Simulated scan of single mutants.
Amino acid sequence: MASYDILVGTVLGASEYVADALSETLSEQGHSVSIHLDPNVQEINPDAIWLICSSTHGAGDLPDNIQPFAKQISGMDLSHITFLVVGLGDSSYDTYCNGAMVLQNLMEKAGAKLAYQPIHIDVLHHPIPEDIAVEWLKDYLQNAV
């Protein structure tokens, strides 16, 4: 089984709820999971798959709690890292899921490998984003073999 470190970017808590649901799903399937509410590169397992779960704040900004992480990875060599992305947003804003897209871009610029297509969850159409995130994760786990 694999190890997953879930890196959470949240303002109002929705991403944290999604991270908890993803963690539970991974644990039920025998994977080891750690959740990082204040992600710090030095505390994240470099051998784990990094699952980034972030909302967008304000005018397309990263949530405050994940901004230091974004600064840390800028310019790093993360070519040994495999990662996944779950974005939460509201499609009535033109910066829909920008926080997740910024983090994905930073990870890819640092050489990290995206393991599966990201999911961007529109909370206008999915008021319980955990449900669709878990469906996406199960699809990934079935196709990751």
Rank of each mutant, 00 (worst) to 15 (best):
V41Y: 09
V102H: 13
I132P: 00
W50M: 01
C53P: 04
P118G: 08
K71D: 15
D122K: 01
H80D: 14
G30M: 03
T82P: 00
T25R: 06
E16C: 08
L106G: 03
Q67P: 00
V123H: 07
G99R: 05
P63W: 13
L88N: 11
E130V: 00
L137P: 00
V102W: 11
V102N: 11
N98P: 00
Y93K: 14
T82M: 07
S79Q: 11
G87P: 01
M76P: 00
P46G: 03
L88W: 04
E24D: 15
N105H: 14
Q104I: 01
S15C: 15
P68V: 02
G87V: 09
D90L: 03
G9F: 13
Y4W: 13
A133N: 05
Y4E: 06
N40I: 06
Q67F: 07
S79T: 10
A110L: 06
F83I: 01
N40G: 00
A110Y: 10
D38I: 02
T95M: 08
L26F: 02
T25F: 00
P127A: 09
S54P: 08
D64L: 04
S79Y: 06
N105T: 12
D64H: 09
G30H: 06
E28N: 12
D38E: 15
S79F: 09
T95G: 03
V18E: 10
L114D: 10
I132S: 05
I73D: 09
Y96P: 02
L84Q: 07
A112Y: 05
Y4R: 02
D38K: 03
G89C: 08
H31F: 05
